[in-house]
């Protein structure tokens, strides 16, 4: 009885690793750096993590996890509540449709595909927020933000790969 309870708790914790890692990394990148103009080059970590975990651990990181990541992003970035939630869930919806194709890609091709899918995501979000504010937001800063996100992709993916190898080594551990 006790063993099964512990086993269940262990599996639950292991399955929560992708979400916890995403939230922790997001918080780390919200940290104030106090250096000139760094705000404009702050990457959107949530998008990289959602992209990685949705493809690699579809069962541990689904719509509800994306909902929570989007919700926290909205709260901390002061975006209108619901914007990032909607966008993240739509992102997951698209990734679920493409997951079979994306799963088989090598790191470099995965990075390239992130550039295209991520760009579409950022532009869609820009459009949604422009509609919300009823005026076009500056696209230059948004693209700068996206470029820094793309540059940070290898680092964030490396952290996620390390976490996956450490805590979720077997495929389909939760299946």
């Amino acid at each position: 009885m006790n063993d099964s309870w512990q086993e269940n708790a262990r599996i639950m914790l292991i399955n929560a690793v992708p979400l916890l890692a995403t939230i922790l990394l997001m918080f780390l990148f919200y940290m104030p750096i106090h250096m000139s103009q760094t705000n404009f080059f702050r990457p959107t970590i949530g998008v990289i993590c959602v992209y990685y975990w949705t493809i690699r651990k579809k069962d541990s990181f689904g719509y509800f996890a994306a909902f929570r990541v989007g919700f926290l992003t909205d709260i901390y970035s002061s975006s209108p509540l619901g914007t990032n939630v909607l966008m993240m869930m739509f992102f997951v919806f698209v990734l679920h449709r493409l997951s079979k194709l994306l799963y088989a890609l090598s790191f470099c091709w995965s990075w390239v595909s992130f550039i295209f899918i991520g760009l579409a995501f950022i532009l869609l979000k820009w459009l949604l927020l422009s509609l919300y504010h009823q005026s076009f937001l500056s696209l230059t800063e948004v693209l700068l933000n996206f470029i820094s996100t793309v540059m940070f992709y290898p680092l964030i993916v490396s952290v996620n790969v390390w976490l996956q190898n450490k805590f979720l080594p077997q495929e389909g551990i939760n299946e």
Partner: peptide, 15 residues
């Protein structure tokens, strides 16, 4: 004390 800055360029806020 500033403890957080906005994470993207869609909003400019601090916590």
């Amino acid at each position: 004390k500033i403890i957080a800055e906005s994470g993207d360029n869609f909003t400019h806020m601090i916590l």
